[in-house]
Design a protein around this nucleic acid. Structure first.
Ligand SMILES: [Mn+2]
Ligand SMILES: [Mn+2]
Ligand SMILES: [Zn+2]
Ligand SMILES: [Zn+2]
Lengths: 139, 139
DNA sequence: TGTTTGTTGAGATTGATTTTCATTCTCGTC
DNA sequence: GACGAGAATGAAAATCAATCTCAACAAACA
């Protein structure tokens, strides 16, 4: 289910749409889905197309500029890649997304790679449950 | 985006469609998506509807009989729940799905719950990369 | 037996994503 | 400066999984 990006093609690194989309991604304080990225980009360039958003999300992903995340929903969310991997905690009740890191995860992955003779290129740990507030409310 | 199953309704536990769907799930040697479950069930009862497959996947999930998994694709896969949690390794190249367990994961989750004051109800660790065979082939 | 309530099949609908296609842009060459 | 090839774009159509609607059906039970 990959988009048809024709691998034998040189990607032009810099178009006004790409610059706009990247700047919106960078300014974003949280994870954006394609539609929200489109909405925000449209405010600055009303003519941009949703197809261009999707196409460039693929390009950015291939270039390693952004991460694609699955946060419970069917649709994907995107965020700029940063130093240090992190994973997500999603509250079933209020939808709040919390980020966390743990050195244990790397340890786990090392072990899994060794035991299964597998080379890991992508890690996604998704935890769902109840956040601080919603946990209280449940009582 | 939940299906409308009307919570204040008593679920009738045993219909011929449910029995059929569960038996197909049990016989399955690997993870099935809704369409594949539908295809296999249709072989035994040509009149079964895809809507019934989806409806009952929700029922089985609520009853804790099956697990829903996200294996890279947008669509979901399902498998019978078994003793002992396990997670998945998916080969980017050949698509092979390998299952694994690690006690480190529980340790990690304990830590995350404590540090973030969060109550975890669902865990999904998805690792993608290259399996034994495909790793070799790459050289 | 008649009523109530849960279930089903078929088909329509939704929502996210991808593709198609005609047009436009970029950039190196003449 | 015109040109040509390749890459990118906008708009709209197509795809695909998942969900919903609704009339018919079946089980439970009064
Ligand atoms: Mn994040
Ligand atoms: Mn499994
Ligand atoms: Zn919450
Ligand atoms: Zn492989």
């Amino acid at each position: 289910m990959k988009i048809n990006l024709n691998k034998h093609v040189t990607i032009r690194p810099d178009t006004s749409q790409r610059r706009l989309l990247l700047s919106v991604m960078q300014e974003a304080e949280k994870h954006l889905d394609a539609k929200e990225l489109y909405r925000r980009a449209s405010e600055k360039d009303a003519s941009i197309s949703l197809a261009t958003v999707y196409r460039n999300l693929h390009v950015f992903k291939e270039q390693g500029l952004i991460n694609e995340r699955h946060l419970g929903q069917a649709r994907c969310f995107y965020e700029m890649k940063r130093l240090g991997e992190h994973q997500h905690l999603v509250c079933e009740s209020c939808g709040q997304v919390t980020e966390f890191e743990s050195p244990l995860l790397n340890k786990l992955i090392d072990e899994v790679q060794r035991k299964n003779n597998f080379f890991v290129t992508k890690v996604e740990l998704y935890l769902e449950g109840y956040c601080h507030k919603c946990k209280e409310g449940k009582r």
